[in-house]
Simulated assay, not measured.
Amino acid sequence: MSNNLLKGKRGIIFGALNEKSIAWKVAERAVEEGAKITLSNTPVAVRMGAVKALANKLNCEVVSADATNVADLENVFRKSIDVLGGKIDFILHAIGMSPNVRRRKTYDDLDYNMLDKTLDISAISFHKMIQSAKKLDAINKNGSIIALSYVAAQRTFYGYNDMADAKALLESIARSFGYIYGRESSVRINTISQSPTITTAGEGVKGMDKLYDFANRMSPLGNASAEECADYCIVMFSDLTRKVTMQNLFHDGGFSNVGMSLRAMATYERGLDEYRDENGKIIYG
Rank of each mutant, 00 (worst) to 15 (best):
Met1Phe: 08
Asn3Phe: 08
Leu5Val: 11
Lys7Tyr: 09
Gly11Glu: 08
Leu17Asp: 01
Ser21Tyr: 04
Ser21Asn: 06
Lys36Ala: 09
Thr38Ala: 13
Arg47Tyr: 10
Gly49Met: 08
Ala50Lys: 14
Val51Asp: 09
Asn59Cys: 09
Asn59Trp: 00
Ala67Glu: 14
Asp72Ala: 01
Phe77Leu: 06
Gly85Pro: 11
Phe90Pro: 02
Leu92Gly: 04
Met97Gln: 13
Leu110Trp: 05
Met114Arg: 05
Lys117His: 07
Thr118Ala: 12
Ile121Thr: 13
Ala123Thr: 11
Ala123Gly: 10
Phe126Thr: 04
Met129Asp: 07
Met129Trp: 04
Ile130Cys: 07
Lys135Val: 12
Leu136Pro: 02
Asn140Pro: 08
Asn142Phe: 02
Ser144Arg: 08
Leu148Ile: 13
Ser149Thr: 06
Ala153Phe: 02
Phe157Tyr: 09
Tyr160His: 12
Asp162Ser: 02
Asp162Ala: 02
Asp165Ser: 13
Ser172Phe: 05
Gly182Val: 09
Gly182Gln: 08
Ser193His: 00
Ser193Gln: 04
Gly207Thr: 14
Met208Cys: 09
Phe214Pro: 04
Ala215Asn: 14
Asn216Glu: 09
Asn223Ile: 01
Ser225Val: 08
Ser225Phe: 02
Met236Ser: 07
Thr241Met: 12
Lys243Gln: 14
Leu249Asp: 08
Asp252Thr: 07
Met260Val: 13
Met265Gly: 10
Leu272Lys: 11
Glu274Lys: 10
Arg276Trp: 05
Asn279Ala: 15
Gly280Glu: 12
Tyr284Pro: 08
Tyr284Lys: 15
Gly285His: 11
